[in-house]
């Protein structure tokens, strides 16, 4: 429940403040959000498997976001589209996590 609570708090604050993400940073923020989403789903999965550990969750959460942003930045510096790499890698993990959650919930 805690992650959902946090998400809700953040969302409400954002709706109230109406912040604007600068165009230049928009891609980085998007990547960080995708990485954090992966970490969140991983957290949900581990809590369903009763192995949730807040310490590991927070660390993976932060490191995912930082690594994703760093990769995108590196890609920009090298003129290589590393965004695709990040999206593919995180996308696969998100699907795996969702599949694991689905098996837990539906039992199959």
């Amino acid at each position: 429940m805690l992650p959902l609570l946090g998400l809700a708090i953040g969302a409400i604050v954002a709706v109230l403040l109406q912040p604007t993400v600068p165009q230049d940073l928009s891609r980085y923020v998007a990547m960080a959000v995708v990485a954090a989403l992966d970490a969140t789903l991983g957290g949900v999965r581990s809590s369903m498997e009763h192995t949730f550990n807040d310490r590991i969750f927070v660390i993976s959460f932060l490191s995912n976001a930082v690594v994703a942003i760093a990769l995108v930045w590196l890609g920009d510096q090298l003129s290589v589209d590393l965004v695709t790499a990040v999206v593919v890698a995180l996308g696969i993990r998100i699907f795996q996590n969702v599949a694991a959650i689905r098996r837990r919930v539906l039992g199959g």
Partner: peptide, 30 residues
């Protein structure tokens, strides 16, 4: 045993709150 409590839950809330904030502000901007 897997669940430990302390400053952990607060960190989880803060981290997810940051994500929620970024997610919504990104959505709003685009």
């Amino acid at each position: 045993r897997a669940r430990t409590f302390g400053s952990g839950p607060a960190l989880v809330v803060v981290a997810t709150a940051v994500v929620g904030f970024l997610l919504v502000s990104q959505l709003g901007t685009s």
